[in-house]
Design a binder for these strands. Sequence first.
DNA 1: CGTGGCATTGATGTAATTCAAAAGACGTGG
DNA 2: CCACGTCTTTTGAATTACATCAATGCCACG
Lengths: 227, 227
Amino acid sequence: MPALGSSDGIIIDRPRFATSACVEPVAEHLTRNADELICAENDHSPYWYRVLTGAARCCTHLNDGRRRVIDFLIPGDMFRVYALPVHRIRLEAVVTPTLVHRYRRLELEQIARFDRAVAREMREEAPRAIERLQAHTVMLGHSSAIERVAAFLLEFSRRSRPQPEDTLVLPMSRSDVADYLGIAVESVSRALTHLRRDGIIDLEGPKRVRIKSRPALEQLAVQVLDA
Amino acid sequence: MPALGSSDGIIIDRPRFATSACVEPVAEHLTRNADELICAENDHSPYWYRVLTGAARCCTHLNDGRRRVIDFLIPGDMFRVYALPVHRIRLEAVVTPTLVHRYRRLELEQIARFDRAVAREMREEAPRAIERLQAHTVMLGHSSAIERVAAFLLEFSRRSRPQPEDTLVLPMSRSDVADYLGIAVESVSRALTHLRRDGIIDLEGPKRVRIKSRPALEQLAVQVLDA
DNA sequence: CGTGGCATTGATGTAATTCAAAAGACGTGG
DNA sequence: CCACGTCTTTTGAATTACATCAATGCCACG
């Protein structure tokens, strides 16, 4: 399968098929354009999802029109709906096209009996989700907008596959980032400009960020100390 | 076992032994005073914890002295350390005394083979943690301090065992709440006074909150809309 | 070439943080 | 039981930072 490119020639992702050989037969292929719904169940869902190309956001919509982006999913990430009495979680595509595999839980468990790799992935899905959520929580605890944006860049860089020259491709819009960080779109923009003016990053188009000084970025996004 | 009371006669908790009969033999009893460490492993830990009485906070300490409270655990809640490459998570007691059971994972799994209740609890630990983290994330997304405090009161009331007269006992300090909500201590205090002045809550001592108008509180803590 | 969506930039009002101090709660020891 | 000291909570005033409103620039697309 060839690399997929967005309209401006940026190579966003190549599919990752960590467990493809075994789960392929039971995988339902979903292709979505940006902002289209991938999954909106609100009760315990029998499906598991895996983002293959593109990106997705896990979010809720508040009744005053605001939106909370709880998590971004990039190729390789898995997703499922947990029993959630409080919030209605949705999964939406962020870029066009976004390819997602959908598996039935029971079929996945069936395969996991024989395939240790699949079993391991199922076992690790929840811990990974928790890891992302905890990191996000720490990020949201950061008081200033610049700290949040800096932490976001580092976190996304860590999760993304390495790109040449410490360049980072943000598949989502500023508005997505804003709702993820809990600040206004303009604040995201200002923070990025601020970082650029300080020579910490370069902006090569709205979606490409080159990290010029990782140490400076890390200093802004106050990292965790060992106790 | 009798009810435990704090010094001012508030019944904070009675122990909950959902799985006591079977896990008791392998449970290590830990008793801690407020602010004392319960667990600070930073790599995949072989232990599972369950808060029995008192309360605990799951948090990280930043290298500028600030602290992020990621989660509060109250009696019945389980805790374990996930493989976390980024943040060092600690579990600390919030009140004196806090009683925690510690189990070895392997022993717990052994028991789970025969005891369906234990198996179910182990299966549900991660989903419950995710549920709490997602709710927390939505809460942190709320912009204003009053919204956050209102959402916190509702969330904590939902998780706590019902108290007479819609009264809520907050075992943790204002500073704990502040670090949990990502705002300053003074802002928490001001928000509570604001809610009291508006007749939405009553403050019977710093730790006792009586919810006088739950609808008003729910309106402040913008709830999630169905899509 | 014009239009619409997204990103950036600027000006202003508002809300939270910060610094500072007083009031209240709690524990200790007289 | 009361007095005292300490810590927590609350309140106040000044500053800072973010959200909001508004306008412009930019790029893609019709």
